[in-house]
């Protein structure tokens, strides 16, 4: 058990309750139709389109979350432009942050 500011967290009760939930789900599942046959869903069925070869039907990484990137396009343009990959720019970032921090520390002292 781990104390948190507003309660506790323990993995064991969590696991036990998950197992109980799974058992209940399985029980409900056994109440279902007994004569159901599996296998039909996987085949192409009245689609009219030819079946794609396997390597084409795999969704590649750059297609995932396409909408997310489209929505945040402006942020991503800025963010990728920030990461120029030039070593001088890394030092410029360092220097400018150093200057800002020096100013902050100085200003805080004055106030």
């Amino acid at each position: 058990m781990m104390e948190t500011p507003s309660g506790f967290w323990g993995p064991v009760p969590w696991i036990i309750s998950t197992v109980v939930a799974v058992v209940i789900a399985c029980l409900i599942r056994t109440l279902g139709e007994k004569e159901h046959k599996s296998g039909v869903q996987g085949q192409e069925f009245l689609m009219g389109n030819p079946r794609l070869p396997e390597e084409k039907s795999h969704i590649r990484a750059h297609n995932i979350y396409w909408g997310f990137f489209q929505g945040l396009r402006r942020y991503y343009e800025h963010a990728t432009n920030m990461h120029t990959g030039i070593i001088n720019d890394y030092i410029i970032w360092f220097l400018s942050l150093l200057a800002i921090m020096l100013m902050i520390v100085f200003v805080v002292e004055v106030i």
Binding site: Y90, F94, L97
Partner: peptide
């Protein structure tokens, strides 16, 4: 004042080494 400057230098150097944004770009 000198201690403040030293603190700022130390902090920024360690942020650079631990890759805190915006000094993280070497990390990837």
């Amino acid at each position: 004042m000198l201690d403040k400057i030293a603190l700022t230098l130390l902090m920024m150097a360690f942020f650079m080494k631990l890759a805190g944004v915006p000094l993280h770009m070497w990390a990837p």
